[in-house]
């Protein structure tokens, strides 16, 4: 399996911001393995974690992301990958179906 890392992104919290971020990846056929997003502080900003493969295009993706008007900060932090591993056990349980 390719080496993974997490992109830690601080964004302006509004309805279209996720589409801006994910669009950058989808139109370059760059797969996002997992996404976490929570509002932070007073809700004016959100923090997004993207689990991605660490390949040669990552630097270009980060530069593209910094160009987005709604993105305040971008960093790559491989130590956060464990958070996604912990979530795997939760997400792997069967979905509760409403009868």
């Amino acid at each position: 399996m390719a080496k993974r890392t997490v992109l830690d992104i601080l964004v302006k919290n509004h309805a279209g911001v996720m589409a801006h971020i994910t669009g950058l990846f989808s139109r370059r056929a760059f797969n996002v393995e997992a996404i976490l997003c929570l509002p932070v502080a007073d809700g004016a900003t959100s923090r997004i974690w993207l689990l991605v493969n660490e390949d040669g295009r990552l630097e270009q993706m980060m530069r593209q992301m910094r160009k987005l008007q709604d993105v305040y900060e971008v960093a790559a932090c491989s130590e956060y990958t464990s958070v996604f591993s912990d979530l795997t056990s939760v997400m792997n349980t069967e979905m509760e179906t409403v009868e």
Binding site: A15, G16, A19, H20, G23, R27, L68, Q69
Partner: peptide, 14 residues
């Protein structure tokens, strides 16, 4: 229009 214009603009607003 907002969604459609994301990949072809520098920025967009609704």
């Amino acid at each position: 229009t907002y969604g459609m214009s994301i990949p072809i603009t520098k920025h967009n607003f609704l």
